[in-house]
Write a protein that binds this DNA or RNA. Sequence first.
DNA 1: TCAATGCGGACCGGAACTGTCCACATATCG
DNA 2: CGATATGTGGACAGTTCCGGTCCGCATTGA
Lengths: 330, 330
Amino acid sequence: MSETTGRLLRLLSLLQARPAWAGEELAQRLEVTDRTLRRDITRLRELGYPVEATPGRYGGYRLVAGGAIPPLLLDEDEAVAVAWGLRTAAAWALPGFEDPAVMALAKIEQVLPARVQERIRALSDATVRVGTQFPSEGRLDVGTLVAVARARQTPERLRFVYRDGSGRESERHVEPYQLVHAGRRWYLFAWDRDREDWRSFRVDRMSAVQPTGMRFQRREDAPDAATFVAEGLAVGVYSYRARVVLHCPIDEARRLVSPTAAVLEEDGDRTLMRIGADDLDWIARYLAGMPVRFTVLEPSELVEAICDLAERLRADAAQAVTPAEPGSAP
Amino acid sequence: MSETTGRLLRLLSLLQARPAWAGEELAQRLEVTDRTLRRDITRLRELGYPVEATPGRYGGYRLVAGGAIPPLLLDEDEAVAVAWGLRTAAAWALPGFEDPAVMALAKIEQVLPARVQERIRALSDATVRVGTQFPSEGRLDVGTLVAVARARQTPERLRFVYRDGSGRESERHVEPYQLVHAGRRWYLFAWDRDREDWRSFRVDRMSAVQPTGMRFQRREDAPDAATFVAEGLAVGVYSYRARVVLHCPIDEARRLVSPTAAVLEEDGDRTLMRIGADDLDWIARYLAGMPVRFTVLEPSELVEAICDLAERLRADAAQAVTPAEPGSAP
DNA sequence: TCAATGCGGACCGGAACTGTCCACATATCG
DNA sequence: CGATATGTGGACAGTTCCGGTCCGCATTGA
């Protein structure tokens, strides 16, 4: 049953696995005659997936760009690579693509076998954090983010434990309305069932997230999520906000600085960078890691943090085994 | 024609877009009766995609993990996010997943409209390099990597311009056999048609890559690619190799250091790190960016590089506008 | 207990699919 | 130029499948 659909998917999979195929080879793989293969090709085209054919010697079929985006048929390892990449994208919160990344991640993680999900989690725990270089304080659990995104899409009520600014934990039961990404962090805008009011939650402070399976009707009178969250944030997202002039043109700065890490502005042939963090030492290390000279405008504490870092580096360097000969580490 | 196949794909797409659906809603969206919907669900199950159904109030269908990985149906933005993530994964060369990442990237970039590819290229130019923090010398063009991967898969002859170690450029015409990832770099192992011999090429030194469209028969007597490349590398992949003791347990080090950037070994409650680069200053900056103390074992030039960096930081800090008041940058 | 929800058998008419046969168009190679 | 390899698509016939309709059953939650 459903022979042809399965075959079309297999055909699509073959066309994706290799850029070009001879018709006869495809027909053999699919165990149909060449005539049927041609009909299948036509069907794919009718579905909006452009297959280009070239006649003559070295001719054949290839799936090309242009029409609808065809279903991606991935094997397990490829799926792991995709999921890992998306986790990175979501954690970096690639500007303009926060949402698609999380959506795509929800799609793919929903269907991957549990043991594969384990592998992904292990991998991304090991690597994502390095890439982002966020201060360790606000580590985002991408699994939580995906769980929240899915609940909001069903839509389905959610239970979780929330740790507020002062470290107190409370259990919450909410109806999720919207995920908002602001200032390098993710927020959930939701209706709190117990408090009977709208609330926003920092996703990195949520834990033990449990979808309840209970669907709900979205309220008509929901305020605008972005506005609501923005108001809550108005006062200080970060403990420190720094302004630094980088001694390089803005183009070079763009290549060095992740758009999610800081805001850049042109300043003649130099670049003004605004960066926020809860930890001045983190900013100092960030600056030290860049291959450009700079000038701190504010805050003055940052100057101290940089001096401290320089001192620390000098001390570490001084400690080096001077003969520089191997034969140490046991 | 092919009514049912298209409908099955749409159904799959719906099931991916939202975790749970009521049968009636699905039937309405697909414009069929509920009986036909049930038949479609059965068809999906027969194709190996497990759809779970729960009866009763709040029941419905959901696509679950377990069977084959279903075709991923992405919209354009999601595809961009996926492609961006994969580029990151390929450039980082996530250990064990270098190949799947490049394969998946080839699959998806093959079918994305040109303007979307432009967006991806712009995005990843801006961000990937930051994440990797590679020395600027060896910047890998992921587009080149994908082009090579596809040619090797067809398999199809390839023309490109190669810049060798001494900077000389030459045009090459090769039959690509294998991509090998070693020491943070990608190599192409191929048969050089003009020189009539096996060669390996560093992908970051290839440019103007052009698939010729001419397919070829793989030779039987091809040597093992990994071995061949490894031999070529035996002498110095990097100009400098450093050994540094990090003053933290290996677990913490693992979270701080990308597995592709350096090799870590336990050393009591500390960690021995081996790291290679063509630029000592890059290593110095890498160390400065980490929130741990360290001791350099070798080379002694690295100690100097760190002192230089510390001096530079101090100088930059000293240059700061001392009153630390805004109102500068025009 | 009732309502909402999913399940699947039976039937039937119409539509779709496949293989076969065939004439044709378009490249590449010698 | 001709031979060969490759893709194109019409026509036909037999078979299969598909979708709608109707119906009774099973499971879940309020």
